[in-house]
Amino acid sequence: MTSNEQQGKPNLPEKDNLPAELGRQRLNSPIARTGMFGAKTTGDTSGYGRLRVYRPAPLASERPYSNPDDPRTLYFDEVADALERSLKEVGTPYDTAIKRVVVDRGEITFHVRREHLVDVVSRLRDDPALRFELCLGVNGVHYPDDTDNELHAVYELRSITHNREIRLEVTCPDADPHIPSIVSVYPTNDWHERETWDFFGIVFDGHPALTRIQMPDDWHGHPQRKDYPLGGIPVEYRGAKVPPPDERRSYA
């Protein structure tokens, strides 16, 4: 498997796949971090201070999604076709509802626009060609650098009938953290959505009772967001002070 396929991109012609060309592309992608060894001051003599690490722009896979060499991916095109047809039946254009599709590491992720989430999951559950009966819940991820899409909600769906699984990813900006609730389609998401609200502050509109579930009711803030500190105090042992984990040297 080439590195392109691992990243969910299609196989490129050889001239576009040369290291020099790939390097040029990498220089165009956004900078993920600078420096190394956690050194931020001028005292850095490692020479790594000016290091810049680029991160590829958001991926989007092209058809075909199925790779004949990878048995895990064989049903991906079938699911995408069935979803496209099924959405057309209820009058929702596929391209409007689905922002992009990513195939990576043998898993398929549909990035769904939040306005169409309930339509998409109802079709996924009810269409006989799809039949994703089991939702494995939702959880959040906070990407502070992903401007206007800071909060992501990730859903894993499983079809027992066809023995398939897919992932849905829905995003919302931090300024307007609203995503429609899918409890009406998958009742199991009741607690999962409460947990995601509790930890990330995503408001699931239409949830029957969106209250905190793990943290106390009067808690301020949403602890698993990246801007929420881990907390902790320095610990002294035999004269040496060990800082709390989030203040220790980071190699990231």
Binding site: L136, H142, E156, D190, S250, Y251, A252
Partner: peptide, 25 residues
Amino acid sequence: CYAVSDGGPRPYRVHFRDPSFTNLQ
């Protein structure tokens, strides 16, 4: 287990779908 990496030596996010949590509903 749902895990996200940002390319670093630490997990960016790890979430566990625990069966007890869901079954208690």
